[in-house]
Design a protein around this nucleic acid. Structure first.
Lengths: 112, 112
DNA sequence: CAGTATCCCCCCAGATACTG
DNA sequence: CAGTATCTGGGGGGATACTG
């Protein structure tokens, strides 16, 4: 069990959730596509290694943002989905995506 | 001049903006307090070193999120403020802060 | 299919000292 | 006051190989 840091500042806590190269993206894709299997996530997140995907999923699970459902079948099947806590972040992630989109558009225009 | 990465995904771009330990916090404080001097930011962001503060400010400036105003006086006076682009991020930062606050409350309750 | 297990590099971040 | 300059480590992140 990883020991959880104690956060006093709610904003720092929120930033910590999205920190790292992949956590935000995993949440984003799970939000848009709903439940996804490990291999589906790996295809979606182009360029991610197995190690990073597993590590990212484990951390998000520890923080209660995603749910991991293991089906005892052969071959193995594991599905990931957002918890209510994870879903409560979705509006913010969408807002971030929109904001990024606008900025990239503006930048593209000014590059003409 | 740092060379800018080319971003295709707007969400990745947005995440990059907030990446690192301090960038989000600097934006957050500048948003809440308005224009701040270097030394004021240093007091506000408890625990930040001069090196990290300067580095963080430079990167935010390069990305067009903050404005740096230098007054040619002795002793030196430098003020930082959000650009329109930086201000457009404020609602999202506030939302993140609210979200973090709710999560920490829930956690505190469940710890009883 | 869904992961572990290693090895390794880079650079973020901190500590400390110095300066116009 | 508002910064540089330098050194250092820790871990984030990648590549590769292996497994129940």
């Amino acid at each position: 069990m990883e020991q959880q840091k104690e956060f006093i500042c709610p904003f720092e806590y929120a930033l910590e959730i999205l920190s790292g190269k992949w956590k935000g993206l995993v949440l984003f894709y799970l939000g848009r596509r709903g439940t996804l299997r490990y291999s589906q996530l790996r295809r979606e997140l182009k360029g991610i290694t197995q190690k990073m995907l597993t590590q990212t999923l484990r951390r998000l699970e520890e923080e209660g943002l995603i749910h991991r459902e293991v089906y005892p079948v052969v071959p193995p099947k594991v599905e990931y989905s957002l918890t209510p806590k994870g879903q409560s972040l979705l509006p913010i992630l969408d807002a971030l995506q929109k904001w990024g989109d606008e900025q990239l558009r503006d930048k593209a225009e000014s590059d003409l």
